[in-house]
Design a protein around this nucleic acid. Structure first.
Lengths: 142, 142
DNA sequence: CTTGCCCCTGACCCGCGGGTCAGGGATTAG
DNA sequence: CTAATCCCTGACCCGCGGGTCAGGGGCAAG
């Protein structure tokens, strides 16, 4: 299956598939004699898993760190993950996922505070220099 | 007052001050004969207002749309804003602020759903193409 | 006069998940 | 054979709030 059809099958674009490959989320698919990418059904399953996890809020970088487990996840019989089972792909419960949840929590709290401050109305503008940690610019990770 | 001192006084950088000026948040300050920017106390007050509102979550673009009201806000005696008073700078209660609050609400809800899905554990990967509206990529405004 | 710090403008850089183009080759239908 | 459609790589683009550099001028102290 060539890249255009594969992309359409999972609801993505050819560009996205090449991008995932470049970032190491997906092992490079076979090529035809003329150099065109040829995706197998297993590749499609892995790609669906990638899209699913991205949709859950994980980043491309997160998934690059889990790349070796992604085929296992895709091959696993459907059903909720049991992180404590040995042999589970253990995507959930990994450090990456816990960190992402913590990051989401922090971001949610930050936005909630902002919204409340804005809703509260305009308090007097503090005279001194605003605390630099007040974060006028969004958090630059790493 | 030259730009370095002005920036230090409000807890920003010279670059940020030039940036606000370029984006129309701040009316261009006077220049010395040699072309250096010279900030007055009123300029500093407006700048503090800008930093404060940015810290509340408004964007530079939002403030550019309110630029004419910012000096009024800075000159106003301190105290909470009463949006219904005539003559108030009426920053709060303007369309811009309501839109920003709505945007924050939407973003908070989106992140909350993501976090819950991630916390929930790994549901089976849906077989079909993931709904393209599921927003694997963050919302591209406008 | 020199040294050292400040200021000027213009231009490119960041993260993130790709979109979009440019220039060239492959595949397929008619 | 030709035309249409696909695919390849490499490079630049987006928003956002500035950071950082490059190359040149200003200004005060010693």
């Amino acid at each position: 299956m060539r890249i255009g059809d594969a992309a359409a099958a999972i609801g993505a674009t050819p560009r996205a598939l090449r991008f995932y490959e470049q970032r190491g989320l997906l092992s490079p698919p076979r090529r035809t004699r003329s150099g065109q990418r040829d995706y197998t059904a297993e590749d499609l399953a892995v790609l669906r898993g990638i899209r699913y996890l991205l949709g859950l809020g994980l980043t491309v970088e997160d998934l690059a760190g889990l790349a070796d487990r992604l085929p296992l996840l895709a091959a696993r019989p459907p059903g909720p993950c049991r992180p404590d089972e040995p042999g589970e792909p253990a995507i959930i419960g990994t450090t990456v996922v816990r960190r992402r949840i913590a990051a989401l929590d922090a971001e949610i709290e930050r936005l909630t505070r902002l919204r409340d401050a804005l809703r509260e109305g305009l308090a007097p503008i503090p005279a001194g220099e605003p605390s630099p940690a007040a974060g006028v610019s969004p958090p630059r990770r790493r």
